[in-house]
Amino acid sequence: MFVLATIAVFAAMLLVLYRLYAGPTLYDRVLAVNAFGTHTVLLIGIMGFLSGRPEFLDIALLYALINFVGTIAILKFFRYRAIGDVLHASAEDEGET
């Protein structure tokens, strides 16, 4: 059962990788990276149970957090061309979005 789930998630990751390679726009690729990260979190969890070492879940949790921050950072970079602070005029704009 966990073997089946591992294979399924792995197949899903390969399909998403294809989209990452082929995706015509930047946003397709960001979406693929985000989906890939979610699949990775699930894969780490399942692999932990498969090998009888659920301690892997700590890594999965960390990966989930980093994946979110990474996605937001990529999007912010391509919107403002800067990861750090942006000047005041855009700070209000940023709060809304």
Binding site: L4, A12, L15, V16, R19, L31, H39
Partner: peptide, 28 residues
């Protein structure tokens, strides 16, 4: 577990199969 794996694969198939970016969002 099996239904979760099924839906995960379905979402990935959708990401590959859908024709444009906006529909791929929904598959993801």
């Amino acid at each position: 577990i099996v239904s979760g794996a099924f839906f995960t694969v379905i979402g990935a198939i959708g990401i590959v199969r859908f024709p444009d970016f906006w529909s791929r969002l929904h598959a993801a």
